[in-house]
């Protein structure tokens, strides 16, 4: 179970619904581990800046996390967390392992546009 300040994606159905209802989505799929927590924290920090992006996390050990674990964009990934960026329901970028604020900002700006 993830203990973060982010909204959690609890199931494959919820994952599908989030993608249907939001144009820009970032989901960090991980555990409460040293490489994952910094990414959750960065997302929590950025929530108020990127109001056009929906920030969520998903428990890597949840059976329904296969929607991210087995995504083609994550093939070859060997480090948690797997972080997915979706635009209009389609995965546009994925990263593996820890990312810093600059790396996350850069992807958000590139994929979803700079915040106003």
């Amino acid at each position: 179970m993830l203990m973060t300040n982010l909204e959690h994606v609890e199931s494959a159905d919820a994952h599908k619904k989030v993608l249907e209802e939001n144009e820009n989505v970032m989901i960090c799929c991980g555990r409460m581990g040293p490489m994952c927590l910094p990414v959750y924290d960065i997302m929590d920090e950025l929530k108020d800046t990127y109001k056009n992006v929906k920030f969520l996390d998903m428990d890597f050990d949840s059976p329904d996390a296969h929607v991210i674990r087995n995504a083609p964009e994550c093939a070859g990934f060997m480090g948690l967390p797997f972080t997915m960026y979706y635009k209009n329901g389609k995965a546009v970028q994925a990263t593996t392992s820890i990312q810093n604020m600059d790396q996350v900002n850069s992807i958000l700006d590139e994929q979803f546009g700079k915040p106003e």
Binding site: G30, R31, G33, P34, M35, C36, G76, F77, M78, G79, L80, T95, T96, S97, I98
Partner: peptide, 27 residues
């Protein structure tokens, strides 16, 4: 945490280089 600071460490982070057995061991 100390890092190795050697060539390849940053390039392969998440693709073979890890700092957490509990997180990444199963891969």
């Amino acid at each position: 945490p100390r890092t190795l600071n050697i060539p390849g460490e940053e390039d392969f982070k998440g693709r073979g280089v890890s700092y957490c057995a509990t997180c990444d061991g199963e891969f």
